[in-house]
């Protein structure tokens, strides 16, 4: 189960990097190849889910084993959502590749690098059982949010200045939003890893009832 999860995460990491490049370089072929990878991620999600169900039903795991199984079930959902967002980015890349040459916002590749490293480090934290590393992932989410707000502001100004480019600029805005969503899913992954290692639920600290 652990191996299948790690392989699935590897595919998702690759999809993020490829989708980011396909969009920045408006590379239709790379976008199509990346979209094709989504099938393997979906299959992996179903297989891992079934594996977890089997283990729950047959072996009735307890304590840390139970925590691991539930964690894996949640992680595959987040990973699959990230892969879907990468597919969305590739679809926009395909659309842009059919239009006039256009340089996407220079911060988009930076955002891709940060998001990819967040997914990678969240999974590395699981492998090395390091909650410190997982906390670093959570902190990096603010960096992505700041990049998103900056891109959003600059795109808004560019749309006002050049209304003819609005179509392409809206695509860039959507991609920035999806990258920001990917960072949120990576944060979920990191929170789950902390739960597994420390047994402490760090989600929504303000919503928790005392005691």
């Amino acid at each position: 189960m652990r191996q299948s999860l790690l392989l699935m995460a590897g595919r998702v990491e690759e999809m993020i990097a490829r989708a980011g490049r396909a969009f920045s370089e408006r590379d239709a072929e790379l976008a199509r190849k990346t979209i094709d990878l989504d099938g393997a991620v979906n299959r992996a999600e179903i297989e891992i889910d079934e594996m977890c169900m089997r283990i729950l039903a047959r072996r009735q795991p307890m304590a840390s084993d139970l925590r691991f199984v539930t964690l894996v079930m949640k992680m595959v959902t987040d990973l699959e959502r990230i892969a879907d967002l990468a597919v969305n980015i590739c679809e926009r890349a395909l659309d842009l590749s059919r239009q006039e040459p256009f340089v996407v916002h220079t911060d988009i590749p930076k955002m891709v690098v940060v998001v990819e490293s967040m997914v990678k480090d969240a999974i590395d934290a699981l492998v090395s059982r390091s909650s410190t590393k997982a906390w670093e992932v959570i902190r990096r989410d603010d960096e992505v949010d700041a990049l998103y707000h900056r891109i959003f502001g600059e795109l808004l100004e560019a749309m006002r200045a050049e209304p003819t480019r609005v179509h392409a600029l809206i695509h860039v805005q959507s991609v920035a939003k999806w990258l920001e969503r990917m960072a949120d899913h990576s944060t979920n992954l990191a929170e789950l890893v902390i739960f597994m290692i420390d047994g402490r639920d760090v989600r929504h600290p303000n919503e928790r009832s005392p005691g």
Partner: peptide, 13 residues
Amino acid sequence: VELVEVLRLPAMH
């Protein structure tokens, strides 16, 4: 160490 723990490159696997 199992390879997949340190290298998750799908093409390699």
